[in-house]
C-alpha cells in the first residue's frame, strides 16, 4: 500500500485490555474509525473512555491485543516505525521537558531528530512563543508549556498531528491560543487527531467528531450533524431541588414542541427544533400541578454534551472513572 494515498488513520476492530490490580480492564473494545487526510478529527468522551489508549496505539506507543491500526498507510512493528515517526507529530497528555532548558533549546533538541522539517524560528512563530524563546521551561506558564509541547510536535512538519487533551487545565485565553495553532495546521493541509473532553473545543475545532464511550465509537459525524440528530438544535433546561418522581418523561414529552427529553433527579433537558412562546407557561403549569413551586428555566443551543447525554444517559462534563 502506498504511503501517501488512502486515509490518514484506519482502525478496524481494535481491542486492548489492561490488567490493573488483578482485574482485566477493557480500554478499547472493538473500535472502528477512519480519519481522512486534511481533516481535524476529534475523539470526544469522558475520562477512561479509551481515547488515550486509542491514540497511543496510533502513535505506536501501545500494541493492540487485536485488530488493525494503519497510520498514513503503514502499520507499526513492520520495520517502518522510524518512517512513521518521521511523518507524525505527537503531543502527549503531560510531558515535562528539561527544566533548565530554554524554549529554543528544547525545540533545537527535537528538531535534530528530523531529517526534514520546520526551522525552530518558524515553529516559535506558529505557536507565538518567540518572545519566550530564551525563557527556561521552569518559568513558563501552563499555557506556554502546552504550546511548547505542541511546538515540539510541529517541528517535523508532520502529515498527521496527534494532540491528546491539549487544553486540559488551561485558562480560556490559553485554550483559544492553542485552537489558533490547530487551525493553522489544518490550513497547511495537515491532518489532526485531537482528543478532548470539552465539547466546545470539539465543536469549535473539529471537522468530524467520534464520541467514544467504554472503548467504542457510539456516534460519529460532523458536530452539526450530531447535534441535528437530536431532532432539534435548542435545549431547555429545567432545574429543581428534586423531581422526586413527581414528573415523568412522558409528562415532559407532551409539552409543546418537545422532541427529546433527558431526565435526572434535579434536571430535565428538553430538546426542541424551535422554542414555542407557550412553553414557559406550560412548564410552570405542569410543575405547579405536581407541587414543584420553585424552578429555574433556561434556553440554550444544543451541544455535543446533549448528544453524549442522549447516547449514554450520562453527563459528559462531570464524568470521572468509577
Amino acid at each position: 500500500m502506498s504511503g501517501t494515498a488512502g486515509p490518514a488513520i484506519e482502525l478496524r476492530e481494535l481491542r486492548k485490555t489492561y490488567r490493573k490490580k488483578g482485574e482485566v480492564v477493557t480500554a478499547v473494545d472493538g473500535l472502528d474509525l477512519v480519519v481522512a487526510r486534511g481533516e481535524v478529527f476529534g475523539l470526544l468522551g469522558p475520562n477512561g473512555a479509551g481515547k488515550t489508549t486509542t491514540v497511543e496505539i496510533c502513535e505506536g506507543l501501545t500494541e493492540p491485543d487485536s485488530g488493525l491500526a494503519r497510520v498514513l498507510g503503514r502499520e507499526w512493528r513492520r520495520g517502518v516505525d522510524d518512517e512513521i515517526r518521521a511523518r507524525i507529530g505527537v503531543c502527549l497528555q503531560e510531558t515535562k521537558f528539561h527544566e533548565k532548558a530554554t524554549v529554543r533549546e528544547t525545540l533545537a533538541l527535537f528538531a535534530a531528530f528530523f531529517d526534514r522539517g520546520r526551522r525552530v524560528d518558524e515553529v516559535l512563530d506558529l505557536v507565538s512563543l518567540r518572545e519566550k524563546a530564551s525563557a527556561r521551561q521552569a518559568s513558563l506558564s501552563g499555557g506556554q508549556r502546552q504550546r511548547l509541547a505542541v511546538a515540539t510536535a510541529l517541528l517535523g512538519a508532520p502529515e498527521l498531528l496527534f494532540l491528546d487533551e491539549p487544553t486540559t487545565g488551561l485558562d480560556p485565553q490559553s485554550r483559544r491560543q492553542l485552537w489558533e495553532v490547530v487551525r493553522s495546521v489544518r490550513a497547511g493541509d495537515g491532518t489532526v487527531l485531537l482528543t478532548t473532553h470539552y465539547m466546545d473545543e470539539a465543536q469549535q475545532l473539529c471537522d468530524r467528531v467520534a464520541i467514544v464511550d467504554q472503548g467504542r465509537v457510539i456516534a460519529l459525524d460532523t458536530p452539526r450533524a450530531l447535534i441535528r440528530s437530536l431532532g432539534g438544535e435548542h435545549c431547555v433546561e429545567i432545574d429543581v431541588d428534586d423531581f422526586a418522581g413527581r414528573v415523568g418523561r412522558d409528562d415532559l414529552r407532551r409539552l409543546p414542541g418537545v422532541v427529546g427529553v433527558e431526565l435526572s433527579s434535579t434536571r430535565a433537558v428538553l430538546v426542541l427544533p424551535h422554542v414555542e412562546s407557550s412553553l414557559p407557561g406550560a412548564v410552570e403549569a405542569l410543575l405547579r400541578a405536581r407541587g414543584l413551586v420553585d424552578h429555574r428555566f433556561a434556553v440554550r443551543p444544543a451541544s455535543l454534551e446533549d448528544v453524549f447525554l442522549h447516547h449514554t444517559g450520562r453527563q459528559l462534563a462531570e464524568q470521572e472513572k468509577p
Binding site: R85, I88, T95, K96, F97, F113, G156
Partner: peptide, 14 residues
C-alpha cells in the same frame, strides 16, 4: 516519571 522518555520514543530518534 516526567513522561519525557515517552515523548522521545515517538520521535524518529533511534
Amino acid at each position: 516519571t516526567h513522561h519525557l522518555l515517552r515523548r522521545l520514543a515517538v520521535t524518529p530518534m533511534r
